[in-house]
Computed example of a mutant assay.
Amino acid sequence: MIVLVITFLLAHLLGDFVLQPASWVAHKNTYKVASKFLYIHVLVHALLLVVLLKFDTQYWVGILTICLGHYGIDILKIYTQKQEASPKAFIVDQLAHLVLIIGVAYAYYPTSDIWFLFKSEKWLLSITSLILVSQVGAIVIRVLMSSWKLEEDSANESLKNAGMYIGIVERLMIFGFVVFDQWAAIGWLIAAKSIFRFSDLSRAKDRKLTEYMIIGTLLSVAIAISVGLLHNYIGSLL
């Protein structure tokens, strides 16, 4: 069951976070059920599932169920959310998708012995974990911190999306340190980041900036460590 869950989850992460541009999301929120990108989005999920499941016809009912369920969840989110990128709506939406994925996987393998099958397919777990740490982590942090806005810097004073890429690299490094049991290196990385950002914290209104940076860093570190620990635990079961 666990391999099927990871496969379903990988398709979901690719379809929702990697292969869905922000312009699609904005178009869906504006035109709702009439948006063409809503149906393209579901089609992308279907194609990902078919490819990742290696065109195995025994899963066609599960693929159809997940795609229809995904469509229904997206429709519900579009018509019920009051604020775009609301943390509450985002969390509920992703939990609903996760419940759907686990439910379909359990329908195929209701017993636990499947957990120990396909021992050579740990690459699925690794790819899923890397996507969680990088793209998904960046979106989760952005959504959770969307209620705070700092006006201290103009867009011209920093590189475009530099903060996002710094966070992704940071989480990937921490994830690698956890996987290879190099916990001390995490402390050195955080210390080095703090030194580099010291000049930023010395500016006016530094209390808000400091709090903002601490929250962002803690969220980033927590996501990377959590995914790393989960990766190691699930990997021990495969």
Rank of each mutant, 00 (worst) to 15 (best):
S220Q: 04
N156V: 13
L38Q: 09
S146R: 15
W183L: 12
I223F: 03
L130D: 01
A34R: 13
S236T: 10
L4R: 02
S202T: 13
S236D: 10
S236V: 01
H27N: 11
N161T: 05
I225C: 10
S129L: 02
V99H: 00
L219R: 03
F8T: 01
I2L: 10
I114K: 14
F55Y: 15
W148A: 14
A85C: 09
N29G: 12
V221A: 11
R203H: 10
Y108G: 08
L117A: 13
L43F: 15
G235T: 05
A222Q: 01
L49Y: 04
V42W: 05
V179A: 14
G235E: 08
R197K: 12
T7F: 01
I223R: 01
C67Q: 06
M164T: 14
V227P: 02
S126I: 04
R197G: 04
L125P: 01
V99D: 00
I66H: 02
L43Q: 09
L201S: 13
T111V: 06
D181I: 02
T7N: 04
A11R: 00
L9C: 07
I234T: 07
H45N: 12
V99Q: 00
E121P: 03
K54R: 15
L218N: 10
P110D: 07
A34T: 11
I6R: 01
L52Y: 05
T65K: 07
I166C: 01
A96R: 06
G137C: 06
S236Y: 06
K160Q: 08
I131W: 02
I195A: 06
S112G: 05
V179W: 03
I139Q: 14
L48K: 02
A107S: 13
K82I: 04
L47A: 15
N29D: 13
I190L: 12
V143A: 14
H97S: 05
I66M: 09
L98V: 07
L229F: 12
L229R: 09
S86G: 04
A11G: 02
S236M: 07
G15Y: 04
S199I: 06
D16W: 07
H97Y: 13
E152D: 14
Y59R: 05
K119E: 12
I127W: 04
T217H: 09
I174H: 02
E84T: 15
H45T: 04
L52V: 00
Y165N: 05
H70E: 09
T217R: 08
S35Y: 10
P110V: 09
R142E: 13
V44D: 05
A26I: 08
I63W: 00
M164G: 06
S226A: 11
A162D: 07
V33P: 11
Y79E: 08
L209A: 15
A22P: 00
A22V: 08
V44T: 15
V33M: 10
Y108Q: 06
L209W: 06
S158P: 00
L95W: 07
V33H: 13
L144Q: 04
L4H: 03
I78S: 11
I78D: 09
L124C: 02
Q58G: 12
I66Q: 03
K77Y: 04
L95H: 04
E211K: 11
S146I: 11
V25E: 11
T57A: 13
S154P: 05
I127Q: 00
L95T: 08
S112T: 10
W60V: 11
Y39M: 08
